[in-house]
Amino acid sequence: MIRRSLWGVVAWIAGIVFVFPVIWMVLTAFKQENAAATNPPTWFFTPTLDQFALVFDRNMTPFLLNSLMASLFSTLIVVLLATPAAYALSLRPVAKWSDSLFFFISTKMMPAVAAFLPVYLLVKHLGMLDNVWTMVILYTSMNLPLAVWMMRSFLLEVPREVLEAGEVDGASLITSIRKIILPIVSPGLAATALICFIFSWNEFFLALNLTATNASTAPIFLVGFISSEGAFLARLCAAATIVSLPVLIAGWVAQNKLVRGLSMGAVK
């Protein structure tokens, strides 16, 4: 009993340590600039919404819409492509499936910046610079390998016996996908989708270099608050708080499935 509560304390401490920067960001967002970077830190202050007003002054809606569009569409495409691919690499393995699995992951081995110049030139020649659809395509390809691997490990959790039993009862492929596989892997699907959404939402490097005025995403809006002249910490925290809200909401909506999904591969 004592041992369990001890572990509980450790878990709580670890949790708070990880969440602390986020809490501090939210707290700072409600400060005036002169209380944002004091030494020692200011814990008690009169909260103000001034910084949020300044952030909304800068017209952040287009940035948020661009981010939403790039993240949602790419996540949707990734899930639609990754699930059948993972199926063909796990439950009904194609010939040389392990090779193609490694081909997928090998695209993640090179840092994005190393492949960036050809990507930039290609995008430029296609006249697709500063276009949200470019970001949709790039985020799809960026997340696809990861999603294939994740979905594969979830599909492997589907017991063979259940599938075979379905087949014996005369279930077609469509039926066994709908009635057997999907219900079992839906937590995994949610976890995969959320991770893809978060990665696309937070992506900075490609967005910085490939968008200009029409297709810029939320992270680009954020760095605009970093100024070489003047105080900006409280405002930056306010903007960062707003930008992290959608991800927080998405995570909260999928919370139940996520806990199951993320621990799915772990319980073996």
Partner: peptide, 19 residues
Amino acid sequence: AACALALSACSGAGTSDNA
């Protein structure tokens, strides 16, 4: 989600038209 998609699709198309 569908509403959000439709909304953002409009905005995306709208901005590129302007340009």
